[in-house]
């Protein structure tokens, strides 16, 4: 039987499929049993009937094959599959988490209006490194830590996609 560990917000949940007959699926989420009628109505949209209630849920794949964006009418969740491989990748990616490096990506498509730093330049936490413009609104992207710019991946005038790398800030070698 299929079982997955899924992470949503700060919660790690075990989801287990118990029975499946066509659209009718019995599963457990942690220890709670759900009997649901689940139907994929379009590419990314599910209709879930649970305890007599009708839920419309969008499941949108992301660049990471183990992470899904799940939208209900009022809420948006990032749900990630927590398997051995994901945990391993997570460990390798942990670099940024200790706050000594920062990878700045664009959260949305837009146009690069200004690049305010150069490779090798020292930056301080909170310093604006890139200004993006989308739909007549400009937003500033700031360094998440003190450090040295190790990569500038865009130049002024570039058009960027959502989640595209802008700047990497690495450890300051001179500082201990």
């Amino acid at each position: 039987m299929m079982q997955l560990e899924l992470k949503v917000n700060d919660r790690n949940a075990i989801v287990k499929e118990i029975r499946r007959k066509g659209n009718l699926v019995t599963l457990s989420v942690d220890n709670k049993i759900y009997e649901v009628d689940i139907d994929k109505v379009s590419g990314e949209e599910y209709s879930i009937l649970s305890e007599g209630k009708s839920h419309n849920v969008e499941v949108i794949p992301t660049d990471d094959p183990k992470v899904y964006r799940v939208n209900t009418i009022f809420f948006a969740f990032d749900v990630s599959v927590n398997d051995a491989e994901a945990r391993y990748m997570q460990k390798r990616k942990k670099k940024d988490a200790d706050g000594t490096t920062d990878t700045i990506k664009s959260p949305m498509p837009g146009k690069v209006v200004k690049v305010l730093v150069q490779k090798g330049e020292h930056v301080e936490k909170g310093q604006t490194v890139v200004v993006l413009s989308a739909m007549k609104m400009e937003s500033e992207y700031k360094a998440g830590c003190d450090g040295v710019v190790s990569k500038v991946a865009v130049k002024e005038g570039d058009t960027v996609d959502g989640n595209q790398l802008l700047v990497i800030i690495g450890k300051d070698a001179k500082k201990k």
């Binding site: 299929m2 997955l4 599963l27 794949p61």
Partner: peptide, 13 residues
Amino acid sequence: EDIALIAAFIEHS
């Protein structure tokens, strides 16, 4: 949250 988890589970599986 559970409903969201179920949807993601079905998609991934």
